[in-house]
Design a protein around this nucleic acid. Structure first.
Lengths: 249, 249
DNA sequence: CGGTTCCGGCTGGAGTTCCAACTTATAGGA
DNA sequence: TCCTATAAGTTGGAACTCCAGCCGGAACCG
């Protein structure tokens, strides 16, 4: 079976091993398509596909006109395979392309960091922050309420004149914006718990009395700097995720 | 910018729209590479790439010698984009290929369903179940304890003679086994909370007194039938996930 | 009439080629 | 010495091609 494996897999495994064991250290230049083609005695298709796979895994990054380089730090979990938050804050954004009816509205506000937020963002208390409030609806029914806080000085800065801004759909989360800037983002999940909703939350989520909500506190870092922290409140302490499994990944 | 988008994206978006709005109902045959090539006036590369992307998204499935078909039920969240459990039970399995030192041992036991487990698996109390106990270690330090329960009659059945079986690494979780069987698996997360660890857990995880553990109760369904339920206990109520973002997905 | 064979169509792996856009280094000119 | 123009190398998008293996239906034969 191993002998009938696709040719490009041999290159992928070989390079991956070298990256993991340090033969190709972070920042190292990966052989170019032409070099791989000669070295492994394969066609350019195979070399190209191998590089694409490694790039998709996050182990290397390609720069047009320059080459493929080993990513500066070891990849633990590539985003596309493991996003803790997929079922929380960005739920709507991820489901929308699949025809699930999810809509959301958001509002941006300037404010100052409370004690807790300041701690999570490693700011001094009362430092200026931008708060976004999201309300997600599925089939008209409100299902999720989220607040995200970002340091006000963060690039790219939020629109200054138009504050407070509002909208429905479309606002990119910090992950997408950091990714666009080519940054490595990490995530700290500080707490996941169920609790009794506050009156305002019960109101927004249109909940009957006596039910609990799922509460997630989450912070995103770019390098070592916290760039966003969020409080996510979902209706009910019991939720369900349905997916189809690709028969062959 | 839209005009400079890759050619294949036009095909992807067009077909995706048709799948979502029902023009191409579940089970429908997708135009073949040759047909797409003619219909959209593009090369075979673009047609092929479009089909590959849709297949990766889980919207269609290719059958060699036959064609590409719309998947039988709407995909909500493709597994590779959203696995709630990636940071819980299968953590080790996902991290291992990236050179992170994670090892685990497991042990299989036959037993009978307690009241709670019976409820979650929709079995009568004291029905026969198979219990697997996992202990995950990172750099030698125990980080996660998990118990999974499956109905004993479930296919593929656990090894009967070798019970109780033990091992280190290698045991496939129910998701992988169901995927291999081509089944759609859904997941219910019943509860996520932090709590005081029980003495046995504190012992296994080598925890100092006074810290909390993160506790997740999770059930997997194949269609409507529960096929596994698990209790996951992680050391600490604060954990961190690090990933690199592909600059362009 | 029923079973078997055969052929056309399809996927998926692989190779080859071309080109635009970009980076980098080098050589030459001010 | 410093700046600029040029050339070589690289990625990424795309087209075209070939082939093995598989599927399904149609034709054919007993």
């Amino acid at each position: 079976m191993a002998s009938s494996d696709p040719v490009y897999l041999r290159i992928v495994e070989d390079l991956r091993r070298q990256i993991i064991d340090g033969t190709l250290p972070p920042g190292a230049l990966i052989p170019s398509r032409a070099q791989l083609t000669r070295r492994y005695g394969v066609g350019e298709t195979a070399a190209r596909h191998a590089l694409r796979v490694l790039a998709a895994e996050g182990l290397i990054v390609g720069r047009v006109g320059s080459g493929h380089y080993v990513r500066p730090r070891p990849v633990l979990v590539p985003l596309h395979r493991a996003r803790w938050s997929d079922h929380h804050a960005p739920l709507a954004a991820d489901l929308a392309p699949y025809g699930v009816d999810v809509t959301w509205v958001w509002r941006l506000e300037r404010g100052v960091a409370s004690r807790g937020i300041a701690e999570r963002l490693r700011l001094r208390e009362a430092a200026p922050v931008v708060r976004a409030r999201y309300l997600f609806r599925s089939n008209g029914k409100p299902v999720q309420l989220a607040f995200s806080y970002e340091p006000a000085d963060l690039a790219p800065p939020p629109p200054d004149q138009a504050m407070p801004a509002e909208g429905s759909n479309g606002r990119q989360g910090v992950i997408a914006r950091m990714a666009a800037a080519g940054l490595t983002v990490s995530e700290i999940v500080e707490s996941v718990r169920t609790r009794i909703p506050e009156p305002a939350e019960r109101d927004a989520l249109d909940l009957p009395a006596g039910v609990n909500v799922l509460h997630v506190e989450r912070t995103h870092l770019a390098g070592d700097r916290p760039v966003e922290t969020s409080d996510i409140v979902m209706s009910g302490d019991r939720f369900r995720v349905v997916y189809n499994l690709p028969v062959r990944p």
